[in-house]
């Protein structure tokens, strides 16, 4: 690589290819994965490289074949049948386009934390527009009051397959964290929501996506600086035991 290229870019292309290769093995730290993801968006050649090296990586599992216990088959197929049945129910409300537009952010995003979480700046907007919407789970009055509050501010983000919306109302001293399309927590674990105030975390309960990956949680926000989500042992913890994969700052 030439010196000027090195000077112009933080990483030259050969270095990026090395990161792409490591990415095919899921061997990147979250920060590097963010770099790769950004590059892949612009580089069809590296997308092809990644696809191809993923095939090569998958071939490395050849010879490791091990039939799982028969009970796993029953368990998997039962879970899939249940999910297939659930999908025949009406789809959840789609997101409101009014929220997705209007990037007039008065709220800042801060710092956010490893664990494979990359928050695209463009995915995060704040608006004063909140429209109550039907929801599959039981409506809770407090949640609707926050969503309908005049001063509600909405932040949107994505995490893996999930669309994450945090709506904060100062007048209600509360926020509502909503997720759509979120994978369930790994077995034996739960997502737990925290209200953050002056560096202290108070549990706001568990976040358990339903069959369609949707869930919402009321987050007390009296004097809080932000909210965060961590992965905790099943049933939750008194204090976070892992770094948040999602954190938002109300400032």
């Amino acid at each position: 690589m030439s010196e000027d290229r090195r000077n112009r870019d933080p990483l030259d292309h050969e270095e990026l290819e090395s990161l792409v290769a490591a990415s095919a093995l899921d061997a990147l730290d979250p920060d590097d994965q963010t770099v790769v993801d950004a590059h892949l968006a612009d580089c069809p050649g590296c997308r092809d490289l990644l696809d191809s090296l993923r095939e090569t990586a998958a071939d490395l599992s050849t010879g490791l074949e091990t039939p799982p216990p028969p009970r796993l088959r029953e368990s998997v197929l039962g879970a899939v049948r249940a999910e297939a049945a659930a999908q025949e129910q009406p789809a959840p409300a789609t997101s409101d386009p009014a929220r997705a537009e209007a990037p007039s952010s008065r709220l800042s995003r801060r710092a956010l934390i490893g664990g494979g979480f990359a928050l695209a700046a463009s995915a995060l907007v704040a608006t004063g527009v909140v429209v109550a919407r039907p929801w599959r789970s039981e409506e809770e009055k407090d949640i609707d009051q926050v969503l309908d509050a005049q001063d509600a501010r909405t932040y949107r983000a994505t995490w893996k397959s999930a669309q994450v919306t945090l709506t904060h109302s100062s007048s209600r001293s509360s926020s509502v964290l909503e997720v759509e399309g979120m994978d369930p927590a790994p077995s034996g674990r739960d997502y737990q929501v925290w209200s953050l105030a002056k560096g202290k975390a108070a549990s706001a309960g568990l976040l358990r996506p339903g069959e369609n990956g949707d869930a919402r949680v009321l987050v007390p926000a009296d004097a809080a600086d932000g909210a965060a989500v961590t992965l905790e042992p099943s049933g939750g913890s008194e204090q976070p035991t892992s770094d948040p994969f999602l954190a938002l700052d109300y400032s």
């Binding site: 599992s61 490791l64 799982p68 796993l72 088959r73």
Partner: peptide, 27 residues
């Protein structure tokens, strides 16, 4: 399933966890 479970078992080296993860994978 034999390939999936075999790979997951190799990475995790723990049959119980490998079963859990394999179930998550198929979902």
């Amino acid at each position: 399933s034999a390939r999936v479970y075999g790979l997951v078992l190799r990475v995790l080296r723990d049959p119980a966890q490998a079963e859990e993860v394999t179930q998550e994978v198929y979902l």
